[in-house]
Design a protein around this nucleic acid. Structure first.
Length: 320
DNA sequence: TCCCAGGGGCCAA
DNA sequence: TTGGCCCATGGG
């Protein structure tokens, strides 16, 4: 099949530096994202129902993007994906304040930021993707979610072949809503099958567009709406807000609680309320970035601080 | 084998 | 409102 190709670049404004693209290549690369030769690659279906294969690399402080398609690439689609890339790669995020001021003053964050200094917290294309991504992360070792998402995309996403390689979109709610529970479970998601189908069904039945929640300015309202979805509780809602919205948010889970107890409360357990106050007062608008550092490669940088951290972070892409 | 994991739903008190 | 089960599955 004939291929159409176009390139564009997205400048990282000086106010958004440092920008650590290598971090994005090597951490939290969940399918349908893939890494090919220092580029993040994935298939999208545009609102006009065209398939585009997107490759994002980095060169001279610009995101270096390439689009491939089996049909003509029109301006609408190109604008759509350009905006999406800016959003997903957090191009307009003035992280210098966080890395050079907040981390510099905090020995724990300083150690945590050493390897991934300048990382920008990437966001998902759609809120639906965030919701499903976090649901499959519930009550499992993080390592397993790579497999679950791979299978969900492979079995329920739409496929396009480029250069002999099959690429898949992230599954649409309509597809998962109509899927058999057993087929969803076959993606090794266990009892989360009913949550996945449940969320998809609710979106279809009530004709919801979760992305519209991005227009709400009141975070507590967003959180409230997310928790109405089956299988979505406080942890899922808060993490979805952190990775699916341009809004500071942080989540409490087994991992973040243990990190906070260990490094900020001398190993003592304290109440969630106290943790929330602490995080809010200490990091405020950068709390999601603080959480990112604290939960990424924790067992590695903890050693530098002379601490053996029990839980193993599975942020790094598995080398298989 | 047993235990636990980057939770949520449900049901008793 | 809170506490204690249960839920699948894979890995240590």
């Amino acid at each position: 099949m004939a291929n159409f190709k176009t390139n564009f670049k997205i400048n990282i404004p000086r106010t958004s530096t440092p920008y650590n693209f290598d971090y994005s290549l090597s951490h939290y690369v969940f399918q349908p994202w893939m890494v090919e030769r220092k580029k993040l690659v994935r298939l999208y279906k545009t609102p006009n129902s065209n398939f585009l294969l997107l490759r994002v690399g980095f060169n001279k402080n610009k995101l270096d993007c390439e689009l491939l398609s089996h049909s003509q690439i029109d301006n609408d689609d190109q604008d759509w994906i350009r905006n999406l890339v800016s959003f997903m790669f957090a191009v307009n995020e003035p992280v210098a304040e966080f890395y050079d001021e907040i981390c510099a003053k905090d020995p724990v964050l300083k150690a945590a930021s050493k390897e991934i200094y300048g990382a920008h917290l990437r966001r998902d294309a759609t809120v639906f993707e965030s919701v499903i991504g976090v649901i499959v992360a519930q009550n499992v070792f993080f390592k397993r979610i790579y497999k679950m998402l791979e299978l969900l995309c492979r079995n329920f996403g739409e496929k396009q072949v480029f250069g002999g390689i099959s690429y898949f979109t992230f599954p649409e709610p309509q597809v998962l809503a109509n899927a058999k529970l057993g087929d969803i479970r076959a993606c090794l998601v266990g009892y989360r099958d009913k949550y996945i189908k449940g969320v998809a069904e609710m979106i279809v039945k009530e004709n919801l567009n979760l992305d519209e929640l991005r227009n709400l300015s009141d975070v507590s309202k967003i959180r409230e709406k997310l928790i109405e979805l089956p299988g979505v509780g406080p942890y899922t809602a808060d993490l979805v807000i952190a990775i699916g919205f341009s809004v500071p948010s942080f989540h409490l889970d087994l991992f973040t609680r243990e990190v906070l107890y260990t490094f900020y409360f001398k190993g003592k357990k304290v109440s969630d309320e106290k943790l929330k106050r602490f995080v809010e007062e200490r990091w405020g608008r950068w709390k999601h970035y603080a959480m990112l550092l604290l939960t990424t490669n924790t067992d590695d940088w903890a050693k530098e601080l002379g601490v053996e951290f029990r839980l193993k972070s599975a942020a790094k892409k598995r080398l298989e």
